[in-house]
Design a protein around this nucleic acid. Sequence first.
DNA 1: CAGTGGTCTAGACCACTGA
DNA 2: CAGTGGTCTAGACCACTGA
Lengths: 229, 229
Amino acid sequence: MTQPLGEAIRDHFERRILAGELAPGARLPTEQEIMTAFGCSRMTVSKALSTLASAGLIERRKRAGTFVARPRVHAMVLEVPDLAAQVMERGQDYRFRLDRREKVTAREGHLSGQSALHLAGTHFADGAPLAIEDRLVSLAAVPAIADADLTGEAPGTWLLHHIPWTEADTRIFAHGASAEEAAALGLQAGAACLCIERRTWRGTEPITAVRQLFVAAGYELVAHFGPGG
Amino acid sequence: MTQPLGEAIRDHFERRILAGELAPGARLPTEQEIMTAFGCSRMTVSKALSTLASAGLIERRKRAGTFVARPRVHAMVLEVPDLAAQVMERGQDYRFRLDRREKVTAREGHLSGQSALHLAGTHFADGAPLAIEDRLVSLAAVPAIADADLTGEAPGTWLLHHIPWTEADTRIFAHGASAEEAAALGLQAGAACLCIERRTWRGTEPITAVRQLFVAAGYELVAHFGPGG
DNA sequence: CAGTGGTCTAGACCACTGA
DNA sequence: CAGTGGTCTAGACCACTGA
């Protein structure tokens, strides 16, 4: 139960910063002074402050010292749960229906020019359409998908289990459903939908590009910012 | 130009993991072995591996060793730029109009029961409505806002400069505009809009709660995941 | 140019936990 | 119970940069 020294140093300054006692721009004691105050070695102080710096709470400037960072809130953590898991967590029944599957040569986007599998399908929650998706999967990066059974499992879930990506871009915007999209989702044309477009890579190799269109009433994204993550 | 040793160790394993050469679940050499291989002290190895661990690339288990993490892609980094800055970056003219300002007692939400300032306004890009917002600001946490001039500067921008928050929750979803909302945005009733609801705190003290409704065609959110951030 | 942080060494003792 | 990571010490030399 004895708290590590480095953690004590982190907690001390984190608490004072969050309480506003140390305002943005305020200077922290030097490493030497903190060493003396906590009776520990400089490495311990340095590691503790480095952690706070990488969390964005403080800024360290050579020769000048360590300062409370002016909050640059340009980023939050967006939760990206697996769709099937999320639906089942709400106590609903989840189902995926594959509507289309064909081998193509991608004409545009980050898979452009590559041989790919074109997949389209519908996600259902309690039997009602929740989202439709349209996806290209690189056959060069993921040859195994050519033989995969995707009639029940969503391709996104299959991919995550087989070829996890290491890098991804996501665009999120509202979109009025076209007549065709509305029909597939059981909505009226023009109805508000949440659209998510994602491209993923493994290292530098493109894996998949997907566009998902969600019924507005059935889906939301959640993001957080804060010291707790 | 000589690369620090710890960085060299980080790069070495990061590259091998991203290339798939070290697959998820694979065991890395022990700290002792890495020490010998790189000819450095154990502290250097430990710090390098700790960085990779906090980035989620590896998992360290006592007695067992260090392993490549199975990617748990449940989080991405969502960019949250200042709206005014974002509009101007597109080369458009930005303007904010305050439509309503009154002192109230909050009835619900995380400011419930507190004295608050109720603000409503419209964001314009090149003279056309881009978003409407409806906001409560705690007068206990931010007394200075009672005397602030908010006719030109958006309250969110003012708040960020005066009482930066340290914690925030955000919900993102699509929403069909009501007749009133549509009129304020120059759209037809039911038109697709992106809705962002955010609550913020400084430490544990609630600061503000805001609901912003964006014209679908004019706004999108972007999120990233990857070793580069 | 002196004070600051950045990085590193060569040790040490400890807690944990799986073979 | 032995091997692993977690943390720490008491030094060191260096690069940077603002007073």
